[in-house]
Simulated assay, not measured.
Amino acid sequence: MEVAVKKDSRGSTQCKKECMAEVTVISRLRHQNLVQLIGWCHDGGEFHILYEYLPNGSLDYHLFCNKTPLAWTVRHKISLGLASALLYLHEEWEQCVLHWDIKLSNIMLDSSFNVKLGDFGLARLMDHELGVQTTGLAGTLGYLAPEYVYIGIASKESDVYSFGVVALEIATGKKSVDLMEDKGLVEWVWNHYGRELQKAMDVRLWIEFVEKQVKCLMIVGLWYAHPDQNLRPSVRQAIQVLNFEATMPNLPSSMPIPLFHVPAPSVRSGEAFIITSVDMGR
């Protein structure tokens, strides 16, 4: 059988930790929209991880490097497949899995352009009852939730934010790190939401697309990427909207300015402390 081999020979403690975390997590997961682990070995200071071979490579390549643009039907299928994978990780497996690095280059495609989410080197397992909340900055700029960047606490809502950015990239054909009119992708699309949302669509889609579905994906993307993590939907809610089984959210016409409560450092009994609000501004 054909396999894909991920090789890491850096030999650092952090490298070994990430490789072992990836093997530990993904070997226990079974879902049609997750990359399947075949095997692994650690020899001579080198890690080799073997995965199922996915001939169509990454979504990043097809959106931004391939001269033939992805058809809307394929993009729509990819969006639903990724949402299904995230629902499994957050709610349907025995533990809650925080992926921590959802981005286009980690979204792989098989021969039929079915989604296979991969790269679980940063993933964390948490009990559902406790919820997912962990510290330490990791991930990729452009996909990081604002509260995570400012406070350093990750949660399921951080993964949801990353998926929101991906959804906007799929619909607009623009990279999360590109600046449009001195704005990031989320704010740029949000400005169009307040006026003419169709102008934010990928111009390469004008040949054949379902406008209702494209607009829905962009609105769900904004909902996922809401600056206030408490106003982001669960993955299940978003899937219902994407399938037109629930009404679309009514978002503000302009992107809200997020406010965060910074957790206080640990204090001794009797000591006073202050919770500070952080205003990101724009």
Score class of each variant (00 low, 15 high):
Y51E: 03
S12Y: 05
H62D: 08
L34E: 11
G57C: 07
E92A: 13
G44W: 04
E22V: 10
G45I: 09
R75I: 12
A71S: 15
L89P: 11
L80S: 05
V97E: 05
C96E: 14
I102N: 05
E22N: 03
Q14I: 15
P55T: 09
T13M: 14
I38K: 10
H48P: 04
R28N: 13
N106A: 13
H31W: 02
N33C: 12
N56D: 09
C19G: 02
K103G: 02
A71T: 12
C15V: 08
D60F: 06
D43H: 08
G39W: 00
Y51L: 05
S112K: 11
M20H: 14
E52A: 09
S79A: 15
L87S: 12
S79P: 12
A21H: 02
V23L: 07
Y51A: 01
Q32C: 09
G57P: 11
L70K: 01
C41N: 03
L50W: 03
Q95H: 08
G39N: 08
H90R: 07
A83N: 13
S12W: 04
L86T: 08
R28D: 12
A83Q: 11
L104Q: 07
I38C: 05
Q32W: 06
L29V: 08
P69H: 06
E18K: 11
H99S: 03
V25W: 07
H90G: 07
H76T: 06
F64L: 07
K77V: 08
Y88H: 03
H48Y: 13
R30F: 00
C65K: 15
R75G: 06
C65P: 00
F64D: 05
E22P: 06
H62V: 07
L59I: 03
S58A: 08
E46A: 03
R28A: 13
Y51W: 15
P69D: 11
G39P: 12
I26H: 02
E52C: 05
Q32T: 14
F113P: 07
W72C: 11
Y88I: 07
L87I: 00
E52G: 01
S79H: 02
S79L: 15
K17M: 11
L98N: 09
I107T: 03
H31Q: 01
F47N: 06
K17F: 10
H62K: 04
